[in-house]
Design a protein around this nucleic acid. Structure first.
Lengths: 208, 208
DNA sequence: TCCACACGATACCGCTCGGTATCACTAGGG
DNA sequence: CCCTAGTGATACCGAGCGGTATCGTGTGGA
């Protein structure tokens, strides 16, 4: 391990900015934002504090950039299920739920980055908080659209219910109150999208 | 006149320990744990840092004591619905949901103390964290019992679903993605407890 | 060849943190 | 009466924080 560190330029290291973001992501996720100092991020990224402040105005801006990356990951999951199941909104919703359910073991005991960051940043004007709220609003809009396409009778209510269970599954995994949360989550979401099947002959009915 | 309840600072102050806990509760809830220093708590409690350390070994122990108080509040809500609707588990569950739903506006943008504290304390051996996990496990057990009494066919799955939506409603209120979360939450829980009404004359579900 | 420029390293600043030591005061019980 | 115990006030400690200043260094393009 030390031998790889020895080589500064012969080994193709990622550019500093990427290394900083990678290190920040891992430390923030594992320890929380306020527990992690800029110095610790620099060390994990194999660079220095000065380099961080050359790429990010403040630590708060670094946090916001991290949140933008996480939000982009979720957006990518949305895009993926949409191209994977074109015209089949029911499968799209289940794909999203599976994306969350499969991510539960990885974040067990540390939970969702959005929820944790929100808890650590009570200031509503914090740049990272604005990123989160904008992302969540956008995500809700897309989910309502899917529920509408799926022919659910009250799409906004269904989207709210799905959102609640997705968030709640992550929280309950974090505090250890519900076991097999992933399986339970999938069954719940299946129940939601199947509860009000569109009447037979509906143009948007699922094909299988 | 409210003077009986009011606590003029000079005349009839609460004992220091109570004032400290009251001040800590408000500051922790509003600002988060790590943002609030012991000095700030002392000032709000109209006492000094030394007095705090006479009553609590460390700041972490003060946090844990706060969590015990919050957990006791939730336990009291459980007890209240059980005595308020004796032998009517469906109403008990709805009463719990109403307890959460009515609390949503008060904690909007700051969320549930348990979730926030968990986010700020990644160390699983932290005393406050153990209080939370023990409380959540106990709460789940009680909820499963209610679902069993209500005759829901899969009480553990139903309890998981209810837990998810209760937690999720608080998270979604905090990040502002779902409006009218309280009303939506109540409709969802009503749907859960009404979805599988036990057939008339059906035998009781098995109790674990 | 030279220069610009991003990067690395280190020292430093002011501030706040959790926690401790010390001393004076006051109320209550024998 | 005094003795004790809890309280208030203040000063202090070492450590870590976010952020800055300064100087050295290696490399690539002209």
């Amino acid at each position: 391990m030390a031998s790889t560190v020895r080589r500064p330029s012969r080994v193709a290291k990622l550019p500093p900015r990427e290394r900083i973001l990678d290190a920040a992501e891992e430390l923030f996720q594992r320890e929380g934002i306020r527990r992690v100092g800029v110095q610790a991020i620099a060390e994990k990224a194999e660079t220095t504090k000065m380099a961080i402040y050359r790429h990010f105005e403040t630590k708060d801006e670094l946090v916001a950039e991290w949140m933008r990356i996480v939000a982009a990951d979720y957006q990518a999951a949305f895009d993926r299920v949409r191209t994977e199941y074109p015209g089949r909104p029911r499968e799209q919703i289940l794909g999203l739920a599976r994306f969350i359910a499969e991510g539960l073991p990885a974040v067990s005991h540390r939970g969702c980055p959005f929820i944790n960051t929100l808890a650590e940043l009570p200031d509503r004007s914090h740049p990272a908080r604005q990123v989160i709220e904008k992302h969540k609003a956008h995500q809700t809009r897309r989910l309502v659209g899917m529920c509408t396409e799926a022919g659910l009778p009250d799409p906004e209510q269904a989207a709210a219910e799905i959102t609640f269970v997705l968030e709640g599954a992550q929280v309950s995994t974090q505090n250890g109150s519900i076991d097999q949360a992933g399986d339970r989550l999938m069954r719940i979401v299946e129940g939601i999208v199947d509860r009000h099947r569109p009447p037979l002959g509906s143009p948007r009915a699922t094909v299988d």
